[in-house]
Design a binder for these strands. Structure first.
Lengths: 339, 339
DNA sequence: AAGATAGATGGGAGCGCTCCCAAGCTTCCC
DNA sequence: GGGAAGCTTGGGAGCGCTCCCATCTATCTT
């Protein structure tokens, strides 16, 4: 505190005429301090504008009150899918703040090598735990984190290692079934699917749900176009579906539904009269498309919030086994699906 | 390292038969180490998978290699303006990574009190410096940071305290002039402006630039509608402009231009035949509007990257005075402005 | 009233690192 | 060949905190 430096515990103790330990007790709300002593110390803390040194505390407690949020995509994805990550992030942030953690954000740079990206994260050494915001199946990062004993929670379902990693996901197969059955009940029979990237468990499960539902209804389950969740991929492969003669498309993301719309418009197909469309995610854009998009709503914010809860329970030793939570997703019916 | 704990410098030193200091020198690339000693130590470091303890290092160096990115808006803004912050963030991140800093993200929770938000940030005690991603005029946070001697850089121009704070901005007045002169040269005379929130210096400067240019051209400078950068505000106040009879609108953000489009469409005005529109920002949406939007492009990514450069120069003591950088903004001509 | 117990407080140890100074060992040059 | 100069290396001190144990006083118990 002299010469402009921040005051330390010791400085406060000296000023208050007590010991380091007593001041520490006051700061950490230890009940074993006489009321008047506490008040006296509190006053000095206030007047000296004392703030405990976070780093010294970290050093001795071994805890940082910091979690990492890892977005293993390049920034570009933020732009293509401008709602998804912010919504997730808001959920993560809500829980983190509530439980007094700060968030370190890790996004892969355009062109950055995956290994270098992971090294950046792992060497940082400042995180009590990590939220992995992605459903891509192979993340060597998962293995590294487990090995280094850093708690981890995912907001999607990882492909393997299920039983060592906590995650929050939705019931993708059931959601796909809901979407497809909706189309069937609207009289559609030749229903195609625009898949997401199949290195992603969500995409795989949605495809499975689609196939199963179609088979159960005695319909063809092989009208499949392969997309990668991005608009462009859907725009391009919609043509293949059209060649096979379809009357509906189940698009595994709203972003891709935009591409489907474009391709259908170009081909002169009316939505929903000629071809019905159902999307997935219920992004804000869904309402802005013409016609407004029927889609599956995922509780993104909740996914983030709950995953962070799981993570912090693990960090704080409140839970030991990995937990798996499946949230419901609901169909939001608008005009694009007809009926 | 015994019983599963991470190895320390001392452990490595013991294993290598040297002292703590020598290992430390190797890690910090001190040239004063014999080549073979270095190689031997490096091998042991490798085989023990040693990583220096970041926190202990912070404690003694007083530096954390962490910067904070403060977004003093609620998450909702991320959604309304889905390109702006990610682009900025990408720029910040690029420089941060290059110079070996991690990013702590601070976004205000919906409904969170401003004071509480600032306290969260200020008490964190883990940041070497802060990027403030906002142009709002009054930020008590600025004062607090200056007082606590935490370096700070802004990606917009603060209203006051200019000379104590580094920032990167664009020449808003010149940009407004370019936009308005473009409209004038296309034959427009009754040009209205849709302003941004006027507690924001960018918005103020754009309005000034607009007025000045109109006056210089001998035209009315009082066709003003007050917006707040959001779509809805523009949609609502466009009507006032229409009542005054306009043939062009200079909208101070692309997001607001969407609202302007909606209001014009509803009123049966053709764009650009009846009313020309120029936007600001050049978000991806600009090309997707019908007709595509003529707008001012801001170098958002560069703003973030350069501001972070200024910040880190201050953090590392490479610069001492506050620096102010003004980047150019360019007009991107599409169909909405006619001509 | 004497011993047991609970309530307050003090202070050493130690977290893992960097910084600094001391000291040993070579090498070189007149 | 002796001393200066450079190259390596070692180890104490200290960053600011929490944890733990020791100590002291006040209160309780029989």
């Amino acid at each position: 505190m002299r010469n402009g430096k921040r005051p330390s515990l010791e400085d406060i103790a000296r000023k208050a005429g007590v010991s380091r330990s007593t001041v520490s007790r006051v700061i950490n709300n230890d009940p074993n301090v006489k009321l008047e002593t506490r008040e006296h110390i509190l006053k000095i803390i206030e007047q000296e504008r004392y703030n405990p040194n976070t780093i010294a505390r970290m050093m001795v407690t071994g805890r940082t009150q910091v979690i990492g949020v890892v977005v293993p995509h390049e920034y570009q994805i933020f732009f293509n899918d401008p709602y998804y990550f912010p919504a997730l992030l808001e959920g993560v942030s809500a829980t983190a703040i509530e439980r007094d953690y700060a968030m370190l954000l890790w996004v892969r740079q355009s062109g950055e090598d995956e290994g270098i990206f992971y090294r950046r994260i792992l060497q940082n050494g400042l995180m009590d735990g990590v939220i992995l915001a992605s459903a891509a199946i192979n993340h060597s990062l998962i293995g590294y984190l487990l090995e280094m004993n850093i708690p981890l929670a995912m907001v999607e379902r990882p492909g393997m290692d299920d039983n060592r990693v906590s995650y929050v996901t939705i019931d993708n197969a059931a959601a796909a079934r809901t979407a497809v059955e909706h189309l069937i009940s609207n009289g559609r029979r030749r229903i195609g699917i625009m898949t997401g990237a199949l290195d992603n468990m969500d995409a795989v499960e949605r495809l499975e749900g689609f196939k199963q539902t179609m088979r159960d209804a005695g319909l063809r389950d092989d009208l499949i176009a392969y997309g990668n969740f991005q608009r462009r991929s859907a725009y391009e492969s919609t043509k293949q579906l059209l060649d096979q003669g379809i009357d509906a498309v189940f698009s595994c993301s709203d972003i891709m539904a935009q591409g489907v719309y474009e391709a259908l418009n170009e081909a002169g197909c009316k939505i929903p009269d000629d071809v019905a469309v159902v999307g997935f995610d219920d992004l804000p854009t869904a309402t802005k498309l013409d016609p407004p998009l029927t889609t599956i709503r995922q509780p993104l914010r909740e996914k983030g919030a709950i995953a962070t809860g799981l993570l912090l329970d693990a960090v704080e030793g409140k839970s030991h086994a990995a937990q798996h939570i499946v949230l419901p997703a609901t169909l939001v019916i608008r005009q694009s699906s007809g009926g």
